[in-house]
């Protein structure tokens, strides 16, 4: 049948086309890959157990699988930065941008098969897959978050940010800066640790008598919609804004144009708008990562959950020095932080 010949031709051409492309497409772009964390281990050959043992003195092999870009100024970057900030010599491989859960599962399994010693599954949504994979590799340490428990697996460490704590502090500050008493929040979809931050923010602000309007736009990606949501908040009288997830850059822009204070979370967002970002809640996972790796050295390769919070220094409120924050407000924020640490203040989340 002619149809079939044609189809085979098509399929062959597909393979051929790909080969040609991979081989010949180079040279057109400048190589600027030098500045990222590429190369390093590369070869990806599976190491046998013996080789692993022999390599005990070499750097610890660590792999990260994460849903967004490693330079996203947010969730994924916070983990990559933390791993690079560790006090020990590690050999780091990254698979980022794997928002498809099944692809992430394949990458996690692949690293495990390659003999990587510590695998960080940086996404709560990977948990279901991890529960199936981890038992197959009992000598590998899996680090998974954000998650509050290890699902009963004894080679999994879990980590979780008490994002409500920073939200609460930001909420207190926001209420103090507002003259209208109305605050606006822009979220993606009502899920994940965005919720904890926003609940904390709301409780903090309401404890100071401010009114908070929370809008989930329904999308992680729609920058324009986030911007229009910020505009709508302003039109309804809000004069301080905050928000979570990657699409908030649109909202930060609106706040910047209107000269309205903004509060950040997940990473220091000062760079996005140096004049109006008041403070950002920043994650420092290295605090708990150090603990996990120390446990691993002593023979415990999993089974515990860790929380980063204001108390252990895994959560830090980073103020923007470029923003003229009244001294008494800053003092109040610091008192709130102290209160959360000593337990006299509850964020209500």
């Amino acid at each position: 049948m002619i149809t079939q010949n044609r189809t085979w031709y098509r399929l062959l051409a597909l393979l051929f086309g790909f080969a040609l492309l991979a081989a010949a497409c180079g040279g057109s772009d400048e190589t600027e890959a030098g500045d990222d964390t590429t190369a390093s281990t590369a070869d990806g050959e599976a190491m046998s157990e013996e080789e692993m043992a022999a390599m005990d003195d070499g750097p610890l092999t660590v792999a990260v699988v994460a849903p967004s870009s490693k330079e996203d100024l947010a969730f994924t970057q916070s983990m990559v930065d933390a791993l690079n900030a560790l006090d020990r010599d590690i050999d780091l491989q990254i698979t980022d941008g794997t928002f498809v859960v099944e692809d992430a599962a394949a990458a996690i399994r692949g690293y495990a098969e390659d003999g990587v010693e510590v695998i960080v599954a940086h996404g709560t949504q990977y948990g279901g897959s991890l529960a199936e994979i981890a038992p197959d590799f009992p000598d590998t340490t899996f680090i998974w978050g954000t998650a509050t428990d290890t699902q009963g697996l004894d080679n999994v460490f879990a980590y979780y940010p008490a994002a409500d704590e920073g939200g609460y502090v930001n909420g207190i500050l926001a209420a103090g800066l507002s003259t209208s008493g109305q605050l606006g929040v822009i979220g993606p979809i009502e899920a994940g640790d965005a919720v904890a931050y926003i609940v904390g923010f709301q409780n903090g602000a309401e404890s100071k008598g401010a009114e908070v309007s929370v809008v989930y736009t329904g999308s992680f990606g729609d920058v324009a919609l986030a911007a229009e949501t910020a505009t709508a908040h302003l039109a309804n009288g809000a004069d301080v804004l905050t928000g979570t997830a990657q699409m908030v850059v649109g909202a930060v822009g609106v706040a910047n144009d209107a000269g309205v204070p903004w509060f950040g979370t997940q990473a220091n967002q000062t760079a996005l708008a140096p004049d109006i970002v008041v403070a950002s809640q920043v994650y420092h996972w290295e605090v708990v990562l150090e603990e996990m790796l120390a446990l691993r050295d002593s023979g415990t390769i999993g089974g515990q959950a860790f929380e980063v919070n204001l108390t252990n220094g895994g959560l830090v409120i980073e103020f923007n020095d470029g923003f003229d924050l009244p001294a008494e407000l800053k003092a109040e924020a610091e008192a709130t932080i102290a209160g959360i640490i000593d337990g006299s203040i509850s964020t209500g989340a």
């Binding site: 849903p67 928002f99 498809v100 859960v101 099944e102 949504q125 948990g127 279901g128 897959s129 199936e132």
Partner: peptide, 18 residues
């Protein structure tokens, strides 16, 4: 047929369907 035996998304259709 998924590893996790559940329906899970990241808030986008592509996150589930690939």
């Amino acid at each position: 047929g998924s590893e996790s035996q559940r329906m899970v998304t990241d808030g986008s259709t592509a996150g589930f369907t690939g």
